[in-house]
Structure formats: structure tokens, C-alpha cells
Simulated scan of single mutants.
Amino acid sequence: MVASVAVIQGAGGSLGSHFARHLLKRTSLSVVGTSRDPAAAKKAILDGAGDGFDPSRLTVLELDVKREDSVAQAASDVEKRFGAKSLRLLINASGVLHADKSIRQVDMDQLLETFQLNTFGHLLAFKHFCRLLPQKNDMRKSQADSADQDPANGAVHPGLSVLASLTAKVGSMGDNKMGGWIGYRASKAAANQTIVTLQRELSMRSTPSIALALHPGTVVGTNLSKPWTREEDAGKKPGVHDADTATAKLLDVISGLGEKDGGRFLNYAGEELPW
């Protein structure tokens, strides 16, 4: 059977819930959202989503990225429900921003939470869900190279699986001109390194899968961005979007990638960003 499951880690947030909505509408994949509060996440995904999709394709599981046993259990639940080689797409969308403006404002508790949500949780999701990636022989047997039989409906290249994390342009060391937000920047840079290292491992394994770091731009109206953005600015400046637009653009980027595109750091327009 062709890999037919998309997992959105952090599906209760603005970006995670909109990723899930788009995938329900644009594909025939089974969509699995994960959250510390599954009921709230399901509500966030379905409220205001409108019609045009089958809500029975949505499964929401409990997952707390601060607890590895919780991540492992969610991966086991997906395997039991959908099969051992079922993973087509994983998007890590969890994140937090504590805006320390200088090194003197760094707080240990906030720093630990920042790395737990922005880096370690993403890494642990990769660790436990990776085993659900199909191998090349699985893909051949499934006829996944036939686009008209592919439940991804073009959202992921036929015969390919994608592991992606939302990082951020401010995690780029090459682009850091202003400083500030040191904990957030460091956690995103560490997440980027995780992506590059994971891609090296995927390249040595017999799995047609790629890992990506993705920058959504400045997304207004989210819990993370509300203190620094205005919702009315969406679309008025390059790279400033609402969550619906940002996630649609990132899924468009993913849809255009092939097996040779692993280990890249891309923005919402598919442009390469410096590490």
C-alpha cells in the first residue's frame, strides 16, 4: 500500500491547524494532528474549515513534545492505525518565542522551554516517526510512481516522503545582522542543524525521503507573533502573511520538491536561505 498518512506535530496552533485543513482539502491522505490537547486541536482544525473534505480522514492524537514517552506513543498509535510504512509527510509546527533582547535577559526556564518546543520536540518526532517511512521496495510494490493513484494528489512528489520542520530565517547565522532574540535564534539554528544531519542519514538509508527546514515568513495573528505584528498587515509587505496563506505557500513549495532536494532551508517562496 502506498504511504498515505500526513502527520502534523503541533496541530493545535495557528500554523499546524491550517496545515491540517489544507491537507484535508487538497489531498486524499489520512491526516493525523498531534497536540497536548487533542479536543482543542480538533476544534481548531475543523472550526471555520468549511466543506469540501471528509472529516473522517482526520485523527487527532495526544502528544506532548516535552515528554519522549508521549512522542513514542503517538508514533505507535499511527503505526497501529495505518500501518508500519505509512508515513508520507511529517510537519513539525510546534514553537514558542521568548523575546530576550540581549544576553542579559536570557532566562533559564524560558530557554529550556524554547529548546524543548523549537528543537528537541522536532528531533524526537523525527526519531520516533522515522520508522514509519516506506523503503524503496515498498514504494515500488505500491505503484506510488503513478500520480493518478497517489493519495497525496501532487502535494508530495509521487514515490517520495517528506520530513519538515518550521524553523525561521532568524535562525540563520548568515543572515543575522541585528542580534537579539538569542534563545529563539539559537533554538532555530539547532533545529536547522538537526535537519541537515537527518538528511545525511536518510541519504544513506534505503528510503526515498527528504528532510527540510522551512521558513513561513512573518505570520500575523498567531499566539507567537501577536505581540509584534498586526493582522491588518497581512499581504501588505513581502513575506507577511496570515496563517492560511503561509501554510498554503509552504505546501506549494513541498509539492515542487524531489528526491534531490533534501537538506535545504527554504522560505515560503521556495527561495534558498543561508544557514
Score class of each variant (00 low, 15 high):
122 H>I: 10
115 F>T: 10
118 N>C: 09
180 G>C: 10
144 A>Y: 02
127 K>M: 00
145 D>S: 13
149 Q>V: 05
180 G>M: 07
185 R>T: 11
195 I>N: 03
182 I>G: 06
187 S>M: 11
145 D>I: 06
157 H>A: 15
188 K>E: 04
148 D>Q: 14
121 G>C: 06
120 F>A: 14
153 N>A: 10
180 G>E: 11
132 L>K: 10
182 I>S: 14
175 D>S: 15
112 L>F: 03
173 M>D: 05
134 P>M: 09
190 A>L: 12
149 Q>F: 06
124 L>W: 09
137 N>A: 15
122 H>L: 12
123 L>T: 13
184 Y>K: 01
162 V>S: 09
179 G>M: 09
138 D>G: 01
159 G>D: 04
169 K>R: 15
188 K>Q: 09
173 M>K: 12
133 L>D: 04
166 L>F: 15
113 E>K: 12
113 E>D: 14
144 A>W: 03
125 A>M: 02
150 D>S: 03
167 T>K: 03
125 A>F: 02
154 G>K: 02
177 K>M: 11
194 T>Y: 08
155 A>R: 02
147 A>I: 10
159 G>F: 05
141 K>W: 00
123 L>A: 09
148 D>L: 09
194 T>W: 00
194 T>P: 00
130 C>H: 07
125 A>K: 01
181 W>T: 04
190 A>D: 07
129 F>V: 06
161 S>F: 07
138 D>L: 08
187 S>Y: 04
162 V>K: 06
119 T>M: 13
110 Q>Y: 10
118 N>E: 11
187 S>I: 11
152 A>C: 03
149 Q>E: 14
153 N>R: 14
122 H>E: 01
135 Q>H: 11
175 D>V: 05
121 G>L: 00
178 M>I: 03
142 S>C: 06
179 G>V: 07
194 T>I: 14
177 K>Y: 08
194 T>A: 10
182 I>N: 15
179 G>W: 08
167 T>F: 08
151 P>S: 07
186 A>I: 08
124 L>K: 09
135 Q>I: 00
169 K>Q: 15
129 F>S: 09
179 G>K: 13
110 Q>V: 05
140 R>L: 14
142 S>K: 03
168 A>F: 01
159 G>P: 01
155 A>I: 06
184 Y>G: 01
191 A>Q: 11
181 W>P: 04
172 S>L: 11
142 S>V: 10
193 Q>D: 00
163 L>D: 01
116 Q>H: 09
173 M>C: 10
162 V>P: 04
112 L>P: 00
164 A>Y: 07
162 V>W: 05
154 G>I: 05
136 K>N: 10
139 M>W: 07
161 S>D: 07
152 A>S: 12
127 K>F: 07
133 L>S: 06
155 A>T: 10
171 G>M: 05
142 S>F: 04
188 K>C: 11
128 H>G: 01
156 V>L: 14
146 S>N: 15
176 N>F: 11
134 P>E: 06
158 P>F: 05
186 A>Q: 03
158 P>N: 06
130 C>E: 10
111 L>V: 11
110 Q>H: 13
176 N>T: 11
139 M>C: 11
153 N>M: 13
192 N>P: 14
160 L>T: 12
145 D>V: 00
123 L>S: 07
